[in-house]
Design a binder for these strands. Structure first.
Lengths: 216, 216
DNA sequence: TGGCCCTGTAACCGATCGGTACAAAAAGAG
DNA sequence: CTCTTTTTGTACCGATCGGTTACAGGGCCA
C-alpha cells in the first residue's frame, strides 16, 4: 500500500523503454545486470559500492550503465526493486499460512534461510544498503526504510486479519506483533551480515515463537 | 572477553599519550571531541562521515585531528570505544538485575530508551556505523561486529548464570536466548534509525518478554 | 628570554569519486 | 552499399576523498 504508492511514484518514467527495432542491439540482459548490481550494493552498501565495482560485476561499462539506468541512485532503486521481487517476495509469500502462528513461523524461517543462503551475500540489502548515509545520499536510507516499512505493513495486515479471526493470543496487538517480528528479522539480518550461522538464527526463531503462544 | 582482547590489541599504542609538561596546552578536551566525532559517525556512518564534517563538528582542524588521533580509522576506534563507555555500558549495567527475566527486561527497555533518546542521533552506532563497507574499509564492519558480539557474550554469561541458578524456563538455551535478545535489540536499532517512536519499541519489548515466561 | 609544543589557516598531494564526450562498432532500413 | 540509429569502449571531466606539509603565531616552562 504505502510501498505501492512509493513504488509507482518513484519508478514512473524510470522503467526501461521498449527495445528499439533499429540500432546496435544491447549486449546484456537488464535483469541479469541488475541482479549483479544488487549483489554489489548488498555486499558493500550504497556508498561503498563504487561505479568501478558495479560496472565490473555487471560486465558493462560506464556509458552503458548511464545510458540504461540514468544514475547511480536510479540504478540502486531498480536493483532494490528487483531485490524485492526476487528475495523479499519469498518471505512475504510465507505469510500465506492458515494461522498467525504458522505465518509468523514461516516468515521468520524463510527470512533466516534467505539471510544465510549461499548463492548471494549474507544479510539483507534493505538493511546493509545504507542505514546511515552521507547527507547527499540521505534519500537512499529513506528508500530502504520505506521498503522495510512496506514489508512490516504486509505483516501487520496479515496479523490484523488473524486478530479478526480470533487467531491471536488474547490481548495481543497486531501492529506491535508485526513490529516485533520485523525487528527480530532485521536483527537477524545484522547478525547474518556479521557471519551468523543459519542454525543460530533458527534457534533464535524458536525462542521468538514462544511469545506468540498463549500463556498460562 | 573476545572484546577485551580485541580492544587491548587494537588500542595498545593508540591511547593518547600523557599530556606534556611543557609547550602550549591543548585547546580542546579529547573526550569531548570524541563524543562529537561519535555523533557524526553515528548519524552518517563511517564512510558517510567526511573529514570536513568531522572536523567541523569536533571544532578542531585537520592537522590537530591527525596529530591527536592518527587517522580516520583510529579516530573511529577511539570514538567507538567512547561510545561503548557512555552508551552501551548502560544497557550492560541493566543486566545486573536479580533474575533473568528482570535482567532481560531492563536490558531491552534501557536499550529501547537509548535508541530513541533525544540528546543524540537515533539508533545505535554499532549498527549504523557500517554494516557493509567498501573493501578498503572492511575492517570497520569487523570492529563493529566485534563490539556487538562482545555485548552478546556479556548477555550470554548473565543468562548462563541464570541457567545454573534454575532461573530460566525449562529447556531454554542461554546462548540462543542471548542471541534472540541481542537480535531484537539490533532490530530495534534499525527501526529507531528509521524514526520509530520509543513507545513502539517498548510495545515490541512487551511481546518479546512473553517468550521468556514459562509456558503452560 | 629561549625553546618547546601546540594552534590556526591555507594550500597541497595522489587517488578516487560520480558522471560524460566522442568516435568506433554493430545492427536494421533504404 | 550507404544511411541511420543505438551501443560500445576509451579516455577524460571537475569535485571530493583521506591525508600531509608549511608556516606564522600563541601559551607555557626552565
Amino acid at each position: 500500500m504505502v510501498w505501492i504508492t512509493i513504488c509507482t511514484e518513484r519508478y514512473d518514467g524510470l522503467m526501461s523503454a521498449e527495445t528499439p527495432t533499429v540500432g546496435r542491439p544491447r549486449a546484456f540482459d537488464e535483469e541479469t545486470v541488475l541482479d549483479r548490481a544488487a549483489e554489489v550494493f548488498w555486499r558493500h552498501g550504497y556508498e561503498g559500492a563504487s561505479l568501478t565495482a558495479l560496472t565490473g560485476a555487471m560486465g558493462i561499462n560506464r556509458p552503458s550503465l548511464y545510458a540504461t539506468f540514468g544514475s547511480k541512485q536510479e540504478l540502486f532503486q531498480r536493483a532494490f526493486a528487483r531485490y524485492h521481487e526476487t528475495q523479499v517476495a519469498r518471505a512475504r509469500a510465507a505469510l500465506e499460512q492458515p494461522t498467525a502462528y504458522t505465518a509468523i513461523e514461516a516468515f521468520l524461517r524463510s527470512s533466516a534461510d534467505g539471510l544465510t543462503a549461499g548463492d548471494h551475500p549474507p544479510g539483507c540489502l534493505s538493511v546493509q544498503g545504507g542505514l546511515a548515509c552521507s547527507p547527499e545520499n540521505a534519500g537512499i536510507a529513506e528508500i530502504l526504510a520505506a521498503g522495510r516499512a512496506a514489508t512490516e505493513s504486509v505483516l501487520e495486515a496479515r496479523l490484523s486479519r488473524a486478530a479478526d479471526e480470533g487467531d491471536l493470543p488474547p490481548g495481543m496487538d497486531a501492529r506491535a506483533l508485526a513490529r516485533f517480528v520485523m525487528a527480530l528479522s532485521e536483527g537477524h539480518a545484522v547478525h547474518a551480515a556479521a557471519g551468523a550461522r543459519r542454525e543460530d538464527l533458527q534457534a533464535s526463531v524458536d525462542i521468538a515463537l514462544q511469545a506468540v503462544l498463549p500463556h498460562s
